[in-house]
Amino acid sequence: MSQVLQVRDLSSGYGRVTILRDINFQIEEDEVVAVIGSNGAGKTTLLKTISKIISPFAGEIIFEGQDITKFPPHLISQAGIAHVPEGGKLFSNMTVYENLLMGTYRNRKKINLKILEEIYEIFPILKEREKQLAKTLSGGERQMLSIGRSLASQPRFLMLDEPSQGLAPKLVDNIYQKLSILKKKGLTMLLIEQNIIYALKFAERAYVLENGKIVMQGRSKELLNSEHIKKHYLGI
């Protein structure tokens, strides 16, 4: 099993504010790993640092053996990393189809429209709304479009920032059902979630982030049974 992602001694933040300190973790091929923690723990900052929307203060990010720490954001995607950002960040004034098409950007020179068919199979509602502007979609549909758009780039590694945020439980179930399809296909994933139950049910392994530091890690089952998690995150 080769290592897909390795993060070493990573520190990051905004301006003069340090959010993450000395982060160390790795993800193996075909793994689904979660990073859990409450609001403000630094989860979104972590994803933004990996996809280089913001630059780290210190440390290294190694993807498939290549040091991508100094890469500009557009080269991260071109390397095969897809980041589904918090809130979706869709191209609001473009249609559903155009959003998905933009997802294929890194492969646009040898474009294969079959990938769009595959995405429509996973998210049939997107086919229905194909010609609608992205801003007219409901919350759940937007999340699906955002995930679909990231999938369109045929990534080797998918990062999701709180896919359940702001969605009703039924929709969240639906989204995770679709994500399971991807898991079965062997896609390596990193999941950020505030909802611990969903995160630990879906991922095999998880890291717990508190105040910018990793305080715990382990297999999901063990974490679910740990006293710390039960007390601080599950209110038991």
Partner: peptide, 10 residues
């Protein structure tokens, strides 16, 4: 439309 999202697309 969205600069960051475009960067994420490559």
């Amino acid at each position: 439309d969205d600069l960051d999202a475009a960067s994420l697309m490559g």
